[in-house]
Simulated assay, not measured.
Amino acid sequence: MHNFIPPSRFFPYLTWTEIEAMPDKENVVIIQPAGAIEQHGPHLPIIVDSAIGMGVLGKALEKLDASIPAYAMPSLYYGKSNEHWHFPGTITLSTETLSAMLMEVGDSLYRSGFRKLVFMNSHGGQPQVMQMVARDLHIKYSDLMVFPLFTWRVPHITKELLTPKEAQLGMHAGDAETSIILALLPDQVKMERAIAEYPPEQPEGSLLTPEGKLPFAWATRDLSKSGVIGDATTATREKGLQILESVSDGWVMAIKDIYAFRQPQSDREC
């Protein structure tokens, strides 16, 4: 049931009495992974985002100092994936459903006495949902510290392992994701089907991009016929092992920061 997570760090393996008696509960770090079940081209399984989140988190919790109390919740495997729903196999929740699930997880953990909650999101289609729910939970419970984090935003070396074009334009099912799945679930990767496909270029001089500071709305089929946005053909397991080590090291740093974090308190009265 714990998948890649060390059993001693898997929240559902605790009893209610262990949770009730947990010391310094306000600083225990609870991590809710959130992924997706969505197409990742003809060569990768649809569990990619969820597998990456659990794989990275499991490796990070293995490395984390035993004196830091941190626990992984079961992954939320389904996410807001409607940008991919033209491809068979994609399962998507609405924004409203995903938000309600996250809010109610937060409510439940708050009732149990926890005050530090991490949303560890591994799907690029839903960071805004995580951010809005995190803010709403903190407004609802002023002493609840919520961290809406994206798995790939911690310090890591991944871009150093990619070509300049892939580092700039690779977005989905390309080199990085294929490599890390080769490290985590090698038997589920069909490299003979791997392809390279990049999105159509915008007119020269345009400031608009699918992602970035000035984005436009898009569905995956607008950018790719195969569902791949990047170059999967250059992926290797060796590269994936390096990525896994580096990203999980970044998560060890992040969890340590969260454990030591104290919510800022201004002197203003309002």
Rank of each mutant, 00 (worst) to 15 (best):
Y77V: 12
A232F: 05
L169T: 02
S94H: 00
P264C: 09
S67Y: 01
S108R: 00
G125Y: 01
K239I: 01
M120Y: 10
E245V: 03
E62I: 12
H40K: 02
R262F: 08
V146G: 07
V228Y: 08
A219W: 15
E160D: 14
A72M: 06
M120Q: 12
A260H: 12
G106H: 08
H40S: 00
P155Y: 02
Q131L: 13
E96T: 05
I31D: 09
P155E: 13
T220L: 15
D257I: 13
G170M: 04
E197P: 01
E201L: 13
L93Q: 04
I31R: 01
V146E: 07
V228R: 05
A254M: 13
S179W: 04
A34L: 15
P42R: 03
M132E: 12
M191P: 08
K59R: 14
G212R: 01
V247K: 02
R221Y: 14
A235T: 03
H138V: 08
K140R: 14
V146A: 09
W152K: 10
P42M: 00
A100V: 08
Y141E: 05
S81P: 03
G58V: 05
G212Q: 03
L208F: 15
Q188G: 09
Y78I: 10
Y78D: 03
P203F: 07
T209K: 14
D65W: 00
G227M: 05
M145W: 06
P155M: 08
I243H: 00
I30S: 09
M101V: 13
I46H: 06
S248M: 11
T151G: 10
D107R: 08
K25I: 09
A235M: 07
I47T: 14
L98C: 01
T220E: 11
V56E: 02
F150W: 13
I46D: 10
E238T: 10
W85H: 12
G55K: 06
M191R: 07
Y77Q: 12
S8T: 15
E245D: 14
A36D: 04
A219M: 15
L223C: 06
V28F: 02
I46V: 14
S94Y: 00
L214W: 11
D143P: 00
G124R: 01
E204T: 13
I5V: 13
V252Q: 08
K256V: 12
P155A: 09
S67D: 15
S206H: 00
G240W: 01
Q168N: 13
T97S: 11
